[in-house]
């Protein structure tokens, strides 16, 4: 009997060198970094009781505190909406300039991306500290911080969306004799709008949570109250604040899901 001739796999393919090698490297890196940084996983479990203790103390939310935090919570939402909107608006032109399928000049693209990387590198707490120093304690500092933070994040998400679009309509508009800006408006925008909205809402959600932390530095909103309750070891108030923030995040998530269903 005869066997069909089967092409031989190279030994790299036969022994799955890439897959196994990658896994080994990852494990070695994990073990090495936990040893070098001195992270003690055992401590997490031995001190678990304290964590439970905290949870127990938070398990009696002071519901009458709700009326106090509604106003600052609204302020937090307003700050998040303002910051996200301003950041996203500025992100659009930068996202266009960073997209490799729209901008053929590698130099321009890389300079823009470097700038965006730089913006993303700045920690939001540092930004908040700076702007509290500039604008004083209050929500202005928070809004500016959130705007810059969202700008860095959204512009990266946006240009990655732009790079996945279908180039056919762009070719058609180019062949019609449209200008570059018109091409983007007619052929790019309709393709990316839904994902833009979706990412915008995601950023809004992140900003609501982030602004609770920014309050620590005096950047306004619910964070100021969160800090106060923690300082006073008033964990029943902390619980209310966390639950209220959860409600806001859930609502934004619901809106986001609904919009995506309607728009797609």
């Amino acid at each position: 009997m005869t066997y069909p001739e089967i092409p031989r796999r190279s030994w790299v393919q036969r022994w799955h060198v890439k897959g196994i090698g990658g896994t080994v490297v990852l494990l070695v890196l994990l073990v090495a970094s936990s040893q070098m940084t001195g992270v003690d996983v055992g401590m997490f479990f031995s001190n678990f009781g304290q964590f439970m203790n905290l949870l127990v103390r938070m398990s009696h939310p002071a519901w009458d505190y709700t009326t106090v935090i509604i106003q600052p919570l609204l302020e937090t939402i307003q700050m998040a909406i303002l910051g996200t909107t301003i950041g996203a608006a500025f992100a659009i032109p930068f996202a266009v300039l960073s997209a490799s399928n729209l901008i053929h000049s590698r130099l321009l693209r890389n300079v823009t991306r470097l700038f965006l990387d730089l913006v993303r590198t700045l920690p939001d707490l540092l930004l908040a500290a700076i702007f509290v120093a500039i604008f004083g304690i209050g929500s202005t500092a928070g809004v500016v911080t959130l705007a810059i933070f969202s700008f860095g994040m959204v512009s990266k998400l946006f240009y990655e969306v732009i790079e996945t679009i279908d180039m056919g309509p762009l070719e058609a508009l180019e062949s019609v004799g449209a200008s570059k800006v018109t091409i983007i408006w007619y052929a790019v925008l309709p393709q990316i709008l839904n994902q833009f909205i979706s990412y915008f809402l995601y950023t809004l959600e992140i900003n609501v949570r982030a602004s609770t932390v920014l309050g620590y530095l005096g950047a306004g909103g619910i964070g100021v109250f969160l800090q106060r309750s923690l300082n006073e070891f008033n964990y029943s108030q902390t619980a209310v604040i966390i639950l209220a923030t959860l409600v806001v995040v859930l609502v934004i998530d619901g809106i986001s899901n609904h919009l995506r269903r309607v728009l797609l």
Binding site: D166, G168, P169, E171, A172, L173, S175, V176, G177, A178, S179, T182, Y186, A187, P190, Q191, L193
Partner: peptide, 26 residues
Amino acid sequence: IGMIFQGFNLINRSSVERNVLSGRVS
């Protein structure tokens, strides 16, 4: 010079009217 493509290259999410008008933008 008009151009017709194998893949039509319409803007899928836009209305037919907007697609047709986009031929006039120049």
